[in-house]
């Protein structure tokens, strides 16, 4: 199961890099989203993937040691997903704003702040 998820995570990262190499801001953004999902999957896999018991103590405080998945990476993951969601929403809003401002999404042509021609 871990191997499968690791391969999936690698595939997501590879796809995302391909997308991020594009000059189009929207595709870059999709690439970024895939990248963060790939990383999230990797963290999930690091916390043991098992269909066993939930990570809760038993009635007498006994530990269901082996069958239990580690709960902490899942908590970290939740935080990371939330943060990623916020950042992505902001980046999306920025992209819309950039499209309205420039009329296109080609990053190579966004040179208002960095004019290409040099002064004599």
């Amino acid at each position: 199961m871990e191997t499968l998820v690791a391969c999936l995570s690698g595939f997501l990262v590879a796809t995302s890099i391909w997308l991020m190499l594009s000059g189009n801001l929207m595709r870059f953004l999709f690439g970024l989203l895939l990248l963060s999902n790939g990383v999230n999957l990797a963290i999930l896999a690091a916390g043991r993937l098992t269909p066993g018991a939930p990570p809760l103590l038993g009635v007498k405080g006994e530990l269901p040691a082996d069958t239990m998945a580690n709960a902490l990476p899942q908590a970290l993951l939740l935080t990371a997903i939330v943060i990623g969601f916020g950042l992505f929403a902001f980046a999306l809003a920025l992209t819309i704003q950039a499209y309205r401002t420039f009329g296109h999404l080609e990053v190579d042509r966004m040179r208002i702040a960095e004019p290409a021609e040099e002064r004599e």
């Binding site: 916020g86 929403a89 902001f90 999306l92 809003a93 819309i96 704003q97 309205r100």
Partner: peptide
């Protein structure tokens, strides 16, 4: 509040 702020703002720009 944060989610509604984001979503409403995004919907309004579309």
């Amino acid at each position: 509040g944060a989610i509604l702020t984001l979503v409403f703002a995004l919907e309004e720009t579309l």
